[in-house]
Amino acid sequence: MSIILDHVNYIYDEDTAMAHAALIDVCLNIPDGQFVGLIGHTGSGKSTLIQHMNGLEKPTSGCVFYDGKDINDSDYDKKSLRAKVGLVFQYPEHQLFETDCFKDVCFGPKNLGLPQKEVELRAYEALKQVGFDDEYFYQSPFDLSGGQKRRVAIAGVLAMKPEVLILDEPTAGLDPKGREDILNLISKLHEEMGITIILVSHSMDDVANYVQRIIVMNKGRVAFDDEPKEVFKHYKELEEIGLAAPQVTYVMQELHEAGFPVDTDVTTLEDAKNEILKAFGKC
């Protein structure tokens, strides 16, 4: 169920004095089952980009294809597209509204027009997938901790059975353990259910640890699009556009300059550890 963006341009407030290009000639191909990290500083066009992927925004020019079909064709069924491409917004817990967690998760599938039984089955499955305990099912979502609320919100999207899951900064505002839990959950959904994941993040350390491919946005254009290792080799360019490489990449860089025989394109803690141990002949 690949997503293809073909020369997509998007201009906010076109034909006014405030016209501002948010996406410029974006061409991307996201194949089925990939785990993609999307990074870029605030205002680089990340959010506009993901809103094109499930038809919330329409390109000023260019096309977006989902599964081979142009999603902006007049006869394209956008409602079913939005069930297939699930979007979890920033701070999704602000969108919780029901009196208990279970009902809240039911809201999405119910709107798909599914029979009640199917709706409840899906809600149950989704809450289980995010590791939510049965005993909290009928509790008000507003009494939960930040991390738990976020799980419920993600379950609400999962209950639509998406083929692609786009998450806009799913770890913002959580404590370190909460961040790790949510990322492990996302990674599990990717591995076990084969869902395509697009993770928007400001944390380079997280991105480096989990994703297979990184897309870097800058001023509405795709600046880099490659494996984490390759992208973070350009750490100097990344800094110029307001980003950075993971801390360990800098550490390895500095060790290399200090004369240690270490590989510099390391992006995860585990690799860094092994490289250093190797340099000290301990491995």
């Binding site: 370190p176 353990k177 909460g178 350390d205 801390q247 803690l269 860094a272 550890k273 250093i276």
Partner: peptide, 23 residues
């Protein structure tokens, strides 16, 4: 810190892991 759901800076963690590995 981990028990308290917290972490340490990545460099600190790397040093900690290396220490455990014998450096």
């Amino acid at each position: 810190l981990k028990e308290l759901r917290l972490g340490v800076p990545q460099v600190t963690l790397l040093a900690h892991e290396l220490k455990k590995a014998g450096l």
